Simulated assay, not measured.
Amino acid sequence: MKVVSLFSGCGGLDLGFIRSGHDIIWANDNDADAVQTYMTNIGEHIKLGDIREIDSETIPDSDIIIGGFPCQGFSIANLKRSKEDERNKLYLEFYRIIHDKQPKFFVAENVKGLLSLEKGKVVELIADDFRKAGYRVSYSLFNCADYGVPQIRKRVIFFGIREDIDINIMFPQPTHSEKPEITGLKPWVTMSQALSHIPEPSEKCDIPNHVFSEYKVFSNKNFTGHRQVDPDKPSPTILARGNGGGGVVVIHHPNNHRRLSVRETAVIQTFPDDFVFLGSKTSCYRQIGNAVPPLFAEKIARQFSNIELFNTVLT
């Protein structure tokens, strides 16, 4: 299917859709480094610019619109989050383009904190907006660790199906579990397992982006970036706090002797080892932390992969 991608970042969500056989025909983001990363690894169909300044008519028609509208205003990490936060209003740009372009389907991603914002009123407001635009809307909370991602990363996924499309699309079922002996599923993938093929940065290797933050490692402070990690569990959430002028919170390596390198955070996020990130070290960490894990994105995208069998319904 033809896909338009909004708030694309470095392309984690897009990569998952490409791996599932879909064709990304147009993408957009306003982060210059992320756009350069995207162009280097995925394609030159991405446009750098503020989505608020892009007319819907200049965006090509597509079967699916996908995107993770900026989540900083929604995040539980932002204790002052509010429905009045300007960053929260960017979902209206996602809504505008869906309303104007009327794709057959849409997929939207956001943080867990969206569910509790204003005691659940905001998420329902968003869902109602999409329903008024002519879509059947469902949403659910997912833990990416349940889909083979070596990371505890909880995200809200919206599915939208245009009202005239007589097809139901189900959310993907988990493939992994914290308690495989009970569920019969595969066990969660641990940090140590995921990073077992990555040598120390001090060793000779040609792995791109294998540089790390030398910010001191603490083990006795109750703060995300200072907590020791359990090598036999999935990683804590890879974060993207900070902006172009500030740093990010970098998780400990599973040996707790240093922080993860840029490449190691990308591995935890399930990017391929040859996916190259451009920009400063801080920018690369941020791009990765903002991304949807490509492996999880692929599981989402597969739900749409067989729909072309129903071309008579979709035309």
Rank of each mutant, 00 (worst) to 15 (best):
V3L: 08
H22K: 05
D23M: 10
A27D: 07
N28V: 07
D31T: 01
T37D: 13
N41L: 07
N41I: 02
K47E: 13
K47F: 12
I51R: 01
R52F: 06
R52K: 13
R52C: 13
E53I: 00
D55T: 13
T58R: 10
P60M: 12
P60N: 13
I65N: 04
I66T: 09
G67S: 04
C71H: 04
S75C: 08
E84F: 12
E84G: 00
R96A: 12
I97W: 07
I97V: 14
I98G: 08
P103I: 07
A108I: 02
A108T: 01
N110E: 03
S116V: 03
L117F: 09
K121C: 11
V123C: 10
D128S: 09
D129I: 03
R131I: 04
K132H: 09
A133N: 01
G134I: 00
Y139C: 03
S140P: 00
F142H: 07
N143Q: 06
R155E: 03
V156F: 03
V156A: 05
I167K: 06
I167F: 11
F171L: 05
F171N: 03
Q173N: 12
P174K: 11
H176P: 05
S177T: 00
P180H: 10
P180F: 07
E181Y: 09
L185I: 04
W188Y: 15
S192T: 12
L195T: 05
L195Q: 10
S196T: 10
S196N: 11
I198W: 14
K204P: 00
V211I: 15
F212W: 15
F218D: 06
F218G: 02
K221Q: 14
F223S: 09
T224P: 00
H226P: 02
R227H: 05
R227A: 15
D232L: 05
D232N: 15
P234V: 10
I238E: 01
L239F: 02
L239P: 01
L239E: 01
A240W: 07
R241L: 11
G245P: 00
G246R: 12
G247P: 04
V249M: 14
V249G: 09
V250E: 05
N256C: 15
H257W: 07
R263V: 01
T265S: 15
T265Y: 04
P272K: 11
F275Y: 15
F275M: 07
F277W: 08
F277A: 01
G279D: 02
S280F: 04
R286I: 13
G289V: 15
A301C: 08
Q303P: 10
N311T: 13
V313N: 00
L314Q: 00
